[in-house]
């Protein structure tokens, strides 16, 4: 185990050191902070009536239920955010179908963790873009961009 770690460290540091200076950099005056636990973003989407109603509905659900009943969702984004984003990115019909599918997958007790990338928070990353029926938008394990939420 220890040798493995050392090996990983050497490998990792080798990759890093070769690339750090491939872009010019300046002094870094940032200060160290502990990672914060963020609150949910309750802001409404005013782009049209549909999104406004949708985000309002979501906020009511968050305020009345989701924020009170504990951490139940193994996925990231959560089901409610997934639904809102799905409708925003497609349309109400497709969004509802995507949500129904997501809800089914969420209820599957035997989720295969190898299917999903695990995010920093320990959640399974399951982006909306993977279910828009556009192969170019699908991101697979290991090549996923950083978590968005």
């Amino acid at each position: 185990m220890k040798t493995k770690l050392i090996f990983l460290f050497v490998l990792f540091s080798g990759i890093i050191s070769a690339q750090t200076d491939w872009d010019k950099w300046e002094a870094d005056n940032s200060i160290y902070q502990l990672p914060e636990i963020k609150d949910r973003d309750y802001s409404l989407d005013h782009s049209n009536f549909g999104t406004l109603a949708l985000t309002m509905l979501r906020d009511v659900y968050w305020f009345g239920f989701s924020d009170l009943d504990g951490d139940n969702c193994p996925f990231q984004p959560t089901c409610s955010t997934f639904f809102v984003d799905a409708v925003k990115k497609t349309n109400i019909v497709q969004g509802v179908l995507m949500f129904a599918d997501r809800f089914t997958r969420d209820s599957n007790f035997f989720k295969s963790e190898s299917r999903y990338k695990i995010g920093k928070s320990g959640k399974l990353i399951d982006p909306v873009d993977n279910y828009m029926l556009d192969e170019n938008k699908i991101t697979i394990l290991g090549v996923l961009p950083d978590e968005t939420e």
């Binding site: 509802v96 179908l97 995507m98 129904a100 997501r102 809800f103 192969e135 699908i138 394990l141 090549v143």
Partner: peptide, 28 residues
Amino acid sequence: AIFYGGNIYGSVAAAQIYNKRNKVNYEQ
């Protein structure tokens, strides 16, 4: 009806993800 439709939709999506996963692994 919603869950029936959602499952058909999700099956198509799952097949697509299956194909993409194989493709990406192969290309990597």
